[in-house]
Nucleic acid binder design. Sequence first.
DNA 1: CTAGTTGCAAAGGCTTTGCCTATAA
DNA 2: TTATAGGCAAAGCCTTTGCAACTAG
Lengths: 167, 167
Amino acid sequence: MARAGRSANAADTSESRIGLLCVERGLKMTGQRRVIARVLSDAEDHPDVEELYRRASELDPRISVATVYRTVRLLEEKGILERRDFGGGRARYEASEHGRHYHLIDVETGKVTEFEDDEHEALMRRIAERLGFELVSMRLELFGRRLKEPDTSSAAKKAKRGKGSVK
Amino acid sequence: MARAGRSANAADTSESRIGLLCVERGLKMTGQRRVIARVLSDAEDHPDVEELYRRASELDPRISVATVYRTVRLLEEKGILERRDFGGGRARYEASEHGRHYHLIDVETGKVTEFEDDEHEALMRRIAERLGFELVSMRLELFGRRLKEPDTSSAAKKAKRGKGSVK
DNA sequence: CTAGTTGCAAAGGCTTTGCCTATAA
DNA sequence: TTATAGGCAAAGCCTTTGCAACTAG
């Protein structure tokens, strides 16, 4: 539900950030596409298609799930969106512009915490190369259970402190 | 297709390694279960349900896919099998006894290369703890494209040399 | 004997698609 | 105007399930 952004007006014809990316790639900007682009731009979490559909329908009821499916697929092919699989059988999406980060999923609540680790990708790249491969992409997800005491003793040390955002 | 092991005789009533694990956990050993256990024991790759069904049917045609689905699910719950997702929408399985290792998937052929990295899990555990979580499990898959020159210069260095087995 | 297992086919959950209408450029 | 996109509902894929018959222990 946490959706920042300005006017969430269906009649708002101005482009969202993702809408702008679509225009850059020469995509035809239909009303539906604009709305979906806005929803994606405003999303601070990792919505699945059903949730995108729900949010988009709020802004403009003249949208079908099929269109949402077609749009996320298109945007993924264009490199604007990234598909995630956090378990549960449904694909979830986030904007590529959110940058490199990984996810830790709370096994009890399903909540997702993002974190960064600059060294990790380089390490995986080296491993792939040693095996004779050029690293194209990778998937890393941690599944964890919330600790009772929030580790008051030691401070952040090696990997950059994650944004800690639970989305 | 690469299946080692001895007699692949349907009438063979002796237990495979995974069959023994089933007995240990007190599972009722039906003919079908025994056959599926043998197929899993002999598998040196990461078969999906359809492939398991094909191999099992070869040993004993009186097996239905439903039983294969039910069996892999059961064995996964018992911790005997592990489910993998290498993309492509179907679950793939391997015996837990194969030990800790990760997978690199060739994006062009789909072939899977296994590798080890002892430090990786510990690193992830530390990251999870810093975020306030106890690491329950994780998922790591690399996707790569085969390099032309097989890196003749440098030898293995940091992470233990993977088994390099392409399965 | 009886709780647990299997086959079969139907049902489910997510995603894609065919077809015809609507529309951006 | 004309190639593209959208709506709707049907179809596809993988997986699960209801139910009656079967079987290991």
